[in-house]
Design a binder for these strands. Structure first.
Length: 109
DNA sequence: CCCTGATTCGC
DNA sequence: GCGAATCAGG
């Protein structure tokens, strides 16, 4: 899972657009946790609540671990999720990026 | 009960 | 740095 420039751009776009982390996460195919964590990492946030300095003593009592082995998962085909059109230059201008962004937002149905 | 974002923790 | 788990509020 690598956050490409367009992923981050779309994330920021939708976020700035007023979309919820869950909506963006759903669109990107991630969990809202990933989106929230990413946003936090970026330094962008909608300050929902101040750092109440939670003691957070949770020491993961039982996080349950998977036996990993004996559970082989066949690799499914991974079609192009994003970047359906490779006819574009290797670099996007702000205009092009914004265009694809707004297009994605408009087709958010 | 559903949702939201924020933070911490393991990898 | 990434994602899941978890907490905290509405």
């Amino acid at each position: 899972m690598g956050w490409d420039a367009n992923d981050v751009a779309l994330l920021k776009k939708l976020w700035a657009d007023g979309h919820s982390a869950g909506q963006i996460a759903n669109r990107l195919g991630l969990s809202r946790n990933a989106v929230s964590a990413k946003l936090k990492r970026m330094g962008q946030k909608r300050g929902r609540k101040p750092p109440t300095a939670n003691p957070r003593i949770v020491s993961v009592p039982k996080r349950k671990v998977a036996p990993l082995v004996a559970c082989a998962r066949p690799a499914d085909k991974v079609v192009s999720q994003r970047k359906p059109t490779a006819t574009q230059p290797k670099e996007f201008t702000k205009r092009q990026l914004y265009a694809m962004l707004v297009d994605a937002v408009r087709n958010t149905g």
